[in-house]
């Protein structure tokens, strides 16, 4: 049911864990839905230098989390914001239709992390 790429990212997830002193943290989903993803980003000069995740969820949720962290690394904030759930799913050679919501989770967590980064930046500039 899952593509080889999904199974690869599920078995060997990239970038698992937390970032100390992150520049942005975003959470999407909740435990009662059975899926929750927490995404950490480190930003330098408007570019995402590092990304890590923690996920509670099924195979697809773990694989999309892993993939999205790979995709954002090295991208500018503007570029990262353009990463859609579809792009994440496509990078994994597709997801079963019933699992597409897992890729939405990845997109939402990324946007939440970027929003958090922007808020922190505004706060800093106002200080």
């Amino acid at each position: 049911m899952y593509s080889d790429k999904v199974m690869d990212h599920f078995q060997n997830p990239r970038n698992v864990g937390e970032i100390e002193n992150p520049d942005g943290v975003g959470t999407a989903g909740n435990p009662t839905c059975g899926d929750i993803m927490k995404l950490y980003i480190k930003v330098n000069d408007g570019k995402i230098m590092d990304a890590k995740f923690q996920t509670f969820g099924c195979g697809a949720a773990i694989a999309t989390s892993s993939m999205v962290t790979e995709m954002v690394k090295g991208k500018t904030i503007e570029e990262a914001l353009r990463i859609s759930n579809k792009a994440v799913a496509e990078a994994l050679d597709g997801l079963p239709p019933i699992k597409m919501h897992c890729s939405v989770l990845a997109e939402e967590a990324l946007q939440a992390a970027i929003n958090d980064y922007n808020e922190r930046l505004t706060k800093k500039n106002n200080e």
Partner: peptide, 11 residues
């Protein structure tokens, strides 16, 4: 890998 832990409420 999970963000959930004992005593942690992410809701």
């Amino acid at each position: 890998m999970s963000p959930l832990r004992e005593g942690l409420d992410l809701n």
